[in-house]
C-alpha cells in the first residue's frame, strides 16, 4: 500500500456530490463567507487552499452543518447534497453528519479503546446488528485507514496511546466506519510529522475510490500532491476553482498567482 504509483491528477468523475449556490456565512455581524458557488464532484479529492482566515475551514464546516454548534453562526444560500438542500428544515443534521464524515485538524480519538473508537459511529447509527457485523465493520474501516496491521493486536488499548499519525488514521477509520459518502478533512496533517503526513496523504488518494473527499490545507504542496481539483479562497471569497494542475501552473486570477508564488499568505 505504500508503493502507490504517482498520483493521477485527472478528474475521472462527473457526478456532482455537493453543489453550493450563493453561500454566505455570518459570525454575528462579520461576514466570513461572501457568496460562494461551487460544485464538488464525487470520487474526487477537492482541496481548499488560501491564507489563514480566508474562510476555507468555515466553508468546509458548512458542508456537514458543524457550524450549527456555534451559536452566533448564521448560514444563508443553498447547499445541495445529491440534489437535497442540507439546510432545509426537514433535514436532521445528525443524519447528515453520518453521511458527510469529518476528520479534524488535531487527531481527536475518544478516550476509549481503538475498537470502541471505530465502532462508535456504527453503534450510534445502528449499522451493525450483531457483534460479528461490528467486528467486520471495524476491521474493514481500520484496513481502509491503513491502520489494521498496526492496530489489530491492540484493539482494546486506548486510542489515545497511539502516535500522532496513527491517531489521525484512527480518526479517519472512525469516520469511514459510519459509511459516509463524503469525507471532509480540516487540515488533517497540520499536527503530524512528515512521515505520518505522507502516510495520510497516500490514504487520502486511496479513499477517493469510494468517497468524495474535501480537504482543507495550508500547504500548497499538499494540495498539489493529493487533489484533483483545487479551490482558492481569499477573504471569504472563492477566488478561483479548477483542476489542480491548472490552478498551480496557470492561475487565472492575479490573487491566486500571488498566493501560489508566495506573495500573500
Amino acid at each position: 500500500m505504500y508503493d502507490t504509483p504517482t498520483l493521477e491528477r485527472t478528474v475521472d468523475s462527473n457526478t456532482v456530490k455537493f453543489s453550493a449556490r450563493d453561500v454566505h456565512v455570518f459570525y454575528g455581524e462579520t461576514e466570513a463567507i461572501k457568496g460562494v458557488d461551487i460544485d464538488i464532484l464525487d470520487n474526487t479529492v477537492t482541496a481548499f487552499i488560501g491564507p489563514s482566515g480566508c474562510g476555507k475551514s468555515t466553508f468546509l464546516r458548512c458542508l456537514n452543518r458543524m457550524n450549527d454548534t456555534i451559536d452566533i453562526c448564521r448560514v444563508t444560500g443553498k447547499i445541495l447534497l445529491d440534489g437535497a438542500d442540507i439546510y432545509d428544515k426537514h433535514i436532521d443534521p445528525v443524519q447528515l453528519r453520518a453521511k458527510v464524515g469529518m476528520v479534524f485538524q488535531k487527531p481527536n480519538p475518544f478516550p476509549k479503546s481503538i475498537y470502541d473508537n471505530v465502532a462508535y459511529g456504527p453503534r450510534i447509527h445502528g449499522l451493525a446488528r450483531t457483534k460479528a457485523d461490528l467486528d467486520v465493520i471495524v476491521e474493514k474501516s481500520l484496513r481502509r485507514a491503513a491502520l489494521w496491521t498496526e492496530a489489530k493486536d491492540r484493539l482494546n488499548e486506548p486510542g489515545t496511546g497511539l502516535s500522532g499519525g496513527q491517531q489521525q488514521r484512527l480518526c479517519i477509520a472512525r469516520a469511514v466506519a459510519t459509511a459516509p459518502e463524503v469525507l471532509l478533512m480540516d487540515e488533517p496533517c497540520s499536527a503530524l510529522d512528515p512521515i505520518a503526513t505522507a502516510q495520510v496523504e497516500e490514504l487520502i488518494d486511496e479513499l477517493r475510490q469510494e468517497y468524495s473527499v474535501v480537504i482543507v490545507t495550508h500547504s500548497m504542496q499538499q494540495a498539489a500532491r493529493v487533489s484533483q481539483k483545487t479551490a482558492f479562497f481569499h477573504l471569504g471569497d472563492l477566488v478561483e476553482f479548477g483542476e489542480t494542475g491548472q490552478i498551480f501552473t496557470n492561475p487565472r486570477d492575479p490573487r491566486t498567482e500571488s498566493y501560489i508564488t508566495g506573495r500573500i499568505g
Binding site: H90, I91, L127
Partner: peptide, 16 residues
C-alpha cells in the same frame, strides 16, 4: 456499508 437503512433526510426511521 452504505446500503444500511440510515437515510439522511427526514427523521422517519424508528432508530432515529
Amino acid at each position: 456499508l452504505s446500503t444500511q437503512d440510515a437515510p439522511f433526510a427526514g427523521s422517519g426511521s424508528s432508530l432515529m
